[in-house]
Simulated assay, not measured.
Amino acid sequence: MEAAEWFQSGDENLVIAHDLRASVRSVQRWRSAWSQGGPRALASKGPASLPVLSDNLFAVLERELLKGPVAHGWPDQTRTLSRIKTLIGRRFHESYTVQGVAALLKRHGWSCQVPARRAIERDEAAVAGWVKETWPDVEGPWQRSTPGSSSKTKPDSR
């Protein structure tokens, strides 16, 4: 709307662009709209795009996500953004980018979680025993360094 005042006073596009920290091309578009429709033509028309999935449709998507990836034909339980993108396309016939899916999920309170990759054969008791019994021998005694010393494993000389 500030640009409309400058258009009326006859300022050049380059000066207006510099003062408003906008591109000259944007100022040219504003001036064209202003010359055709006056200051009202410069009023905001809202966001460039609205969310494709409404809150009601997102609730349906959440129910689908809670079924898990295997229920939708994937071989494992890994839920990825690209899989969710494909699910949205299949279920709602809407197209999202992977970044758009991430923004959609974040907007509705979902967070990114990276699964811990562990072998199916992992024996938690054996791991706990190794950490308790073997690791201290491998790690060695950890001792405080003396003032002026840069080594943390050097024996204390006090």
Rank of each mutant, 00 (worst) to 15 (best):
Y96M: 09
P39N: 04
W130C: 00
P69Y: 05
E5S: 13
V98C: 11
P69M: 09
S82Q: 11
L81V: 01
S145Y: 10
R40E: 14
P39Y: 05
E124R: 00
W30Q: 06
R118I: 02
T146E: 15
S151H: 10
R91L: 12
V101P: 01
D76I: 06
W130H: 05
A4T: 08
V15L: 15
T86G: 10
W74K: 02
F58Y: 14
K132Q: 06
A103G: 05
R118M: 03
S149D: 08
G89K: 12
G129V: 00
E121F: 04
D76P: 00
I88Y: 07
E139G: 00
E124L: 03
S23A: 14
S49Y: 09
H18D: 13
T78F: 07
E139L: 03
A125Y: 04
P155K: 15
L53N: 11
D156V: 05
P39L: 02
P51W: 01
W74Q: 08
D19H: 15
V27T: 07
Y96V: 00
L42Q: 08
S9Y: 14
H93Q: 15
S54W: 09
S111H: 09
S9A: 15
Q77I: 04
S157F: 06
A22S: 13
W34M: 09
P115A: 04
I84E: 08
P147G: 06
S54V: 08
R117I: 02
A59F: 04
S145L: 04
S9L: 14
I84V: 15
F92G: 08
I88H: 08
G109C: 05
W110G: 03
V127H: 07
R144C: 03
V15D: 14
C112V: 07
S151N: 11
A41Q: 06
P47N: 09
I84P: 07
W30R: 06
S49L: 09
S44T: 07
V24N: 12
